[in-house]
């Protein structure tokens, strides 16, 4: 599904963020990427989200080089990739409902579909009672659950989660991890970066360990070892 072919990323100041990365993620996998700060985890995700370009190598999504996509193709690609972030990145002037509806509108879904799907997806993350709350009226865990609902509402092929539990308390962390596992169990590929050893050990899924821009371990039922 996702294939990194000898990908390197070197910034203008000559610092190496990624060095000759080759890895693949198959459909339905739950892959965690761990590593110290500066190991290259976020750069890896930025390249998948086409927020940055690799200095060399190529990244394929279903056999298509995503950095060769035209603007309109890139928009469609992003609709197939759900994203959640440590800082939630909800639209501050939109309610929980509107944040999720926006992703559906962007994908060209009809008003009827939006009216049916948004409450449903909010009930999946147990937030239907907070539908009309603005982000500043929600707790960190609730914000992240809204972000997850927004990320999955268009039924993406893959969910990219960049440190999604970084700002959460243990209980919210547990809830978010359970939701991510449930999403994966339903067939969506999940790619997660985290610093949280408890999360990795609890998941018991594939773990890729990065250090100084290189992949140093890739265990199918790995644990957090640094």
């Amino acid at each position: 599904m996702i294939y990194f072919d000898q990908v390197s990323k070197i910034y203008i100041d000559s610092s190496i963020a990624l060095e000759n990365i080759t890895l693949s993620v198959t459909p339905g996998e739950f892959v965690s990427v761990v590593g110290h700060s500066g190991a290259g985890k976020t750069t890896l995700l930025k390249l998948i989200l086409v927020e940055d370009k690799p200095s060399s190598g190529a990244i394929y999504f279903h056999s298509t080089d995503i950095h060769d996509l035209r603007r309109d193709e890139l928009t469609l690609y992003r609709q197939r990739v759900g994203t959640i972030f440590q800082d939630f990145r909800l639209l501050p002037n939109k309610t929980a409902y509107e944040n999720i509806a926006f992703a559906m509108e962007a994908a060209g879904r009809t008003d009827e579909e939006i009216e049916a799907d948004v409450p449903h997806v909010l009930s999946l993350v147990d937030l239907e009672h907070k539908m009309w709350n603005f982000p500043h009226e929600l707790s960190g865990g609730e914000k992240q659950r809204v972000a997850i609902a927004r990320a999955i509402v268009n039924q993406p092929d893959v969910l990219i989660a960049d440190e999604p539990t970084g700002n959460l308390d243990p209980l919210s962390t547990y809830e978010v991890v359970q939701i991510l596992k449930k999403i994966n169990d339903l067939g969506t590929t999940v790619l997660l970066t985290t610093h949280n050893k408890g999360v990795i050990d609890n998941l018991g899924r594939r773990v890729i360990t990065m250090d100084k821009g290189r992949v140093v371990r890739d265990d199918s039922t790995g644990r957090y070892i640094l």
Binding site: T75, L91, N93
Partner: peptide
Amino acid sequence: RDEISVMRLVGASYSY
């Protein structure tokens, strides 16, 4: 500006 970057990431077209 942050909203705009989020909108891009959820797959909204530039014109939208």
